[in-house]
């Protein structure tokens, strides 16, 4: 029951931001880049719901477009992680105890030794800052995460008798991985995907805060925060709203992940 509640609340929160992001393609209260110096530092009100920034730009419009950046970066980074990590994890589990497994595992350890931000720094140092590089930096870090989750889930499945039965039916390791292993680790991947999605949003915010993410004029939550920092003394609203947007989105995704875990985890279900 608790799983269902957090799934709905979390899904609702995260879903709301996704809808706002999608809506921003067709409608925002003001054009997000439109400056109006006369209307700078407006407090939240009827005209500008969340106020305006130092150039008179509408904060609500920037937040909506910023959601687009955050969500896009996080989704693509999760996609990279799944596309790269899941096959590696399946392969490692199918060749347990061989050098393939060993290389995949140690490779993962090595990526983990690089803090994701350090990878981003390295990439930007060479290629220059951009949203694409932020995606790459976050996505590379996701690959070993998904590889590990997939491998761990797959290893416990490989010991089960239905895998033996499939081998008796003449099926090879690749086919068994696709037909029997993948569908049964899908739940784990969905839960992990939600977690990595929320971590991706946090990471993107951090990168763009230090100027290594999306570049102007593309709005992003992290850079809105960076811009507001020097103005914090007399316009705290500029620092509050983007931060709240990040917290609510991440909170929603985390709650959703917890809810999914409770609902999908067969161990928890069997115990109930």
């Amino acid at each position: 029951m608790r799983g269902r509640a957090s799934l709905f609340i979390g899904g609702g929160l995260a879903g709301a931001f996704v809808i706002l992001a999608l809506l921003s393609f067709v409608w925002t209260p003001y054009p997000y880049a439109a400056m109006d110096i006369a209307a700078k530092f407006r407090p939240p009100g009827a005209l500008h719901w969340l106020g305006t920034d130092q150039f008179g730009r509408d904060v609500a419009a920037q937040l909506m477009v910023g959601a687009r950046t955050s969500i896009a970066v996080a989704i693509v980074a999760v996609g990279i992680g799944i596309a790269g990590g899941v096959p590696l994890g399946l392969w490692a589990a199918a060749s347990r105890g061989t050098w393939v497994d060993e290389v995949i595992q140690r490779g993962g350890d090595l990526v983990f030794a690089f803090p994701s931000l350090v990878i981003a720094i390295l990439i930007t140092a060479v290629f220059g800052p951009s949203a694409l590089n932020a995606i790459l930096a976050i996505g590379i870090f996701n690959i070993p995460v998904f590889a590990r989750v997939t491998r761990a889930g797959a290893l416990s499945l490989w010991t089960l008798d239905y895998i033996r039965a499939a081998r008796l039916a003449g099926k090879g390791r690749a086919r068994i991985s696709l037909e029997h292993i993948l569908p049964n680790v899908a739940n784990l991947l969905i839960v992990q995907g939600t977690i990595q999605f929320s971590l991706g949003i946090l990471a993107e915010a951090g990168l763009s805060y230090v100027g290594l993410g999306a570049q102007p004029p593309t709005p992003s939550w992290g850079r809105m925060l960076a811009d507001s920092q020097t103005l914090m003394g007399f316009a705290p609203g500029l620092a509050i709203f983007p931060g709240m947007a990040i917290v609510l989105t991440v909170l929603g995704l985390n709650l959703m992940g917890d809810g999914l875990r409770d609902l999908l985890d067969p161990r928890l279900r069997r115990r109930a």
Binding site: A205, G206, Y209, M232, A239, I246, V247
Partner: peptide
């Protein structure tokens, strides 16, 4: 803790500055 893991540390830092320093 559910809130704690959702808060970006640099934003939290800004809020701390706002409250305890400014």
């Amino acid at each position: 803790t559910q809130f704690g893991i959702a808060v970006p540390n640099f934003w939290f830092a800004m809020l701390l500055v706002l409250l305890f320093a400014l």
